[in-house]
C-alpha cells in the first residue's frame, strides 16, 4: 500500500499553479491544488483540477506518426526526425527561412521554449516564433 502526493507545476498555461498529483500504488489517481503555493494559494481552474486525466487517456500520442497515403502511420523517432529535417531543409532552400514559422507550447518548460526559439533563430534563421498560450 503506497499513497503519496507529488509536488508539480501545472503545464496548461503560463500562470504556473502549484499542483499535487495523487499517486496510489504507482498510478496517478487525482490532482489537488497546492495550498501553500504563492501563485494559486490552494485554488485551480477546471483544467488544473483535471490535469492528471490525460496521463492514461486512450487518445494520448505515445509514438510519432507520419502521414502516408492520407493516413497516419506509427513511426520511430529516427524516421520522424528524418522527415522533419528533409522537409524543413527543402522549404528553406526553395523559399527562404522566413517561409517557416515555429509554434511552441505551454506544456513545455520555460527552458525548452527558450531552446526552441533559439533554434528557430539560429538554425532556421527566422524570427517567426510564437507560443500557444498567447490567449
Amino acid at each position: 500500500m503506497n499513497y503519496e502526493t507529488v509536488l508539480t507545476t501545472c503545464t496548461y498555461c503560463g500562470c504556473g499553479c502549484g499542483l499535487l498529483l495523487e499517486v496510489l500504488d504507482g498510478e496517478v489517481v487525482g490532482t489537488l491544488p497546492q495550498k501553500d503555493h504563492v501563485i494559486n494559494e490552494g485554488g485551480a481552474c477546471i483544467k488544473g483540477w483535471n490535469a492528471h486525466e490525460f496521463i492514461y487517456h486512450e487518445g494520448r500520442l505515445k509514438h510519432p506518426l507520419i502521414r502516408k497515403d492520407n493516413s497516419f502511420k506509427e513511426a520511430s523517432w529516427e524516421e520522424a526526425l528524418e522527415v522533419v529535417v528533409t522537409c524543413l531543409k527543402k522549404i528553406k532552400e526553395e523559399n527562404g527561412p522566413d517561409s517557416i514559422a515555429g509554434l511552441t507550447s505551454a506544456r513545455c518548460t520555460n527552458e525548452e521554449n527558450y531552446v526552441f526559439q533559439k533554434w528557430m533563430r539560429a538554425v532556421i534563421g527566422t524570427n517567426n516564433v510564437d507560443h500557444c498560450a498567447r490567449l
Binding site: Y3, E4, T5, L20, Q34
Partner: peptide, 20 residues
C-alpha cells in the same frame, strides 16, 4: 493499522501522505 493518512513535510511543504 496498516498505514496512517496525514500530512508530511515534502520539500518544505505540508502535503498528504500515507505513512506505512
Amino acid at each position: 493499522v496498516s498505514a496512517i493518512l496525514a500530512l508530511r513535510r515534502n520539500h518544505g511543504h505540508p502535503t498528504p501522505f500515507l505513512f506505512t
